[in-house]
Amino acid sequence: MTNTNTERNFKWRGIDLVTTAILAAALGVAFWGYDVFIYPVASTLGNIYPPLAELQLGVWLIPAVLGAVLVRKPGAALYAELIAATVELLLGGNSWGWANLVSGLAQGLGVELVFLVLGYRRYNLRFAMIGGAISAVFEVIYEYVSWVPEYSVLQKAVYMVCGVISGAAIAGLVGWWLVQTLGRLGVLNAFASGREARLADKEELRKA
């Protein structure tokens, strides 16, 4: 009756599902906080040159990266992002309506694709950032069709670059950092990702 989880197991446990769902919902609530603290400032800056506003894109991609890095199972990014998008939709106060879910789908699939290529086996900061970047690519392509179809080619390129930088820098970094921090605090001991973060932290302490 030993319980070391050495072999990869892609079957979702109850705790994987519910932790991802609740964390995604919590991030949905944090988005709402973001609207209060940051969004007014950031949007004002964005109006000077609209593609700059796309530098915020990464914020909305955090759940996908966090889900993937936390659970390490197929579908985690998509699941987390769709739930966060639904929460945002239900809390209201934005202009996107159910198009939120299309965005959520695109964003989740972007991160999902990166970890699929990696066989859901390799998780580190670099891949988290690549995940965030590809997620941004997917989202921006969707926005090309629906939100900014009239932009000139040059402006579309700038738009893409801003989105990708944000996806990597915000979603990748913050998503990764959140899982590491929660793991170090010891609240993710039921997850391989959390246990690794906790052990890495102890290792560092020992060296210091």
Partner: peptide, 25 residues
């Protein structure tokens, strides 16, 4: 400061949510 405050609030919310999620599971 606002950005740091937001970080603090988010992290504590997530910690609390994670602990709760484990109980819920």
């Amino acid at each position: 400061g606002g950005l740091r405050e937001l970080g603090t609030l988010t992290l504590l919310t997530l910690v609390d949510a994670t602990r709760g999620a484990q109980q819920t599971a």
